[in-house]
Design a protein around this nucleic acid. Sequence first.
DNA 1: AAGACGGGGGG
DNA 2: CCCCCAGTCTT
Length: 355
Amino acid sequence: MSFAVKLMNWYRENGRDLPWRNTQNPYVIWLSEIILQQTRVEQGMPYFHRFLEAFPIVTKFAAAEEEEILRLWQGLGYYSRARNMHKAAKMVVDEYGGQFPTSYAEVIRLAGVGEYTAAAISSFSANEAKAVVDGNVYRVLSRYFGIDEPINGSKGKKVFAEIAGEMLDLDNAATYNQAIMDFGALQCKPKSPRCETCIFQLECVANRAGIVDKLPVKLKGRASKNRYFHYFIVQSDDRILMSKRGETDVWANLYEFPLIETEQDFMLEELAQTPLFSEYFEETARFTPLGNMTKHILSHQNIYARFYLLQDAQSLRTKKSNWNYFFVEKIDTLAKHKLIFSFLEKNKQLINPKF
DNA sequence: AAGACGGGGGG
DNA sequence: CCCCCAGTCTT
């Protein structure tokens, strides 16, 4: 029996019942696939339902404000996915009259849709014979064939894409693709894979050689950098000053408080010596520290954040173009990054005059 | 070819 | 603490 057939038999017995699998609607599949990029199923699930409810069809998605989309995306990370989805939805409306395309060649032109997602959408919605190559597929194939070529090198990506295409069941691309990903997620797991109960025990090169835990090989990443953020909560009447982040850095376009970043972990007294501080605040400005230093870990940076309440808004010297005052109720609707909305969650009573 | 881009969960 | 997750885009 072929690899593909054994895999699909396993899938029939052991596959997960996921909501986006009960449809061939390319819009719904696209929604789920973008959400699931670099994201666990359990983490993405509530967002999938949230988005489908807010935007049941692609024309609704295209017609939404980017702010609303980002707010719905809040907390999921990799926020460019949300902005790219908006672009893609508009393109579907403009170029396909709102009829979501299903072919690989068409969907890969959409913003945020790369090789993996194009293969997923085209195979799941139209059974197009394109093999998905995601983290699961790299792992399963590298172990099954005992390939130690790094999966994140340019050669490795080529090698595995080719093998994935050869293994694909051309007549059952949809089922095969779901099957190999579920197999990677449930059976051929990164840590403590279930080799004792594996249907490929005899064929799997890594298993026979006892090197399952050595595969796949991955080139190591770089070290994390430390960054120090000093946030200032400025209240004027019932409003709070919020700052919108730029396009380039992490958390693009999301809202936070006015910020001064330093290379070192400055205390307030040291921070007061910096040019930016003098630009923002009067000499007489007084601050109340809010809570302790917060550590927020991203993939390649550790962000250490401190929060200060400015006691008198009159001590603020300037108001940059990306700074605006918002009422507390309005702030709830702004798209904020995790560091900010967890702070707000913990400190409601400090900043909301109603409490 | 290498970096940038989030946040959560597991070992 | 490190690794991984239904990756993509930019430089």
